[in-house]
Amino acid sequence: MSNEYILETRGLTKEFKGFVAVSDVNLKVRRGSIHALIGPNGAGKTTVFNLLTKFLQPTTGSIFYNGTDITEDRPAQVARRGIIRSFQISAVFPHLTVLENVRIGLQRKLGTSFHFWKSQKSLEQLNGRAMELLEAVDLASFAGTMTVELPYGRKRALEIATTLALDPELMLLDEPTQGMGHEDVGRVVGLIKKVAADRTVLMVEHNLNVVADLSHVITVLQHGSVLAEGPYEEVSKNPQVLEAYVGAAHD
């Protein structure tokens, strides 16, 4: 298979009781790029993510990752192949400390995650790496804090650190800047740029400034189908896209 694309979908379709949420999507994500998936509310972006990570089973169509058909994988298997997603709603472990959150991401590699007889002190060997990751997202000083006590923006940053703990080849970010204040958005954009240096990122994002700033390729989704695809300059001038966005604004 071609090495150029890390992820490819063919005819990806998802129906919910007759309602087609994702319709015949052929997506190609270039290795090493930042690829944005945009579209009005309800366009099917999150559903595409759920299909790619196998949280949902496609009605028809198939998914290829590094040339391997992963359509029949279980979600945890997909993750172990190197595709790690974040969620549209902040996904942290609220009643674990910030450090422990990142360690959950790191500890699988140790191969002791079923060892119920072992002391959790055995996880302390991961603290160094965990602190590095927290450092990278400006959270080192919160390491011992209960995660539930973090402000929202910080939680999203922690989520990214936990995702990075798995050193994913492909990161799927579902609206990483949603609900954030201006400063936090800047921080997260900088972070995504940094981490995308040696991996591929597929992201859903509503903030078009962020999209323009970060992405190499943009796919526009509307009513579950691909409306347009290309670099920002091109897509942003596409009359259909403009209409879709304006139309949505009038809804």
Binding site: T53, A91, R108, F116, K118, L166
Partner: peptide, 20 residues
């Protein structure tokens, strides 16, 4: 234990544990 940590993560946010 390391196992207990994973259990707690499941209690706290199951989809996230799966995605990891």
């Amino acid at each position: 234990s390391p196992f207990g940590q994973v259990l707690k993560s499941i209690r706290e946010n199951e989809p996230r544990s799966i995605s990891l």
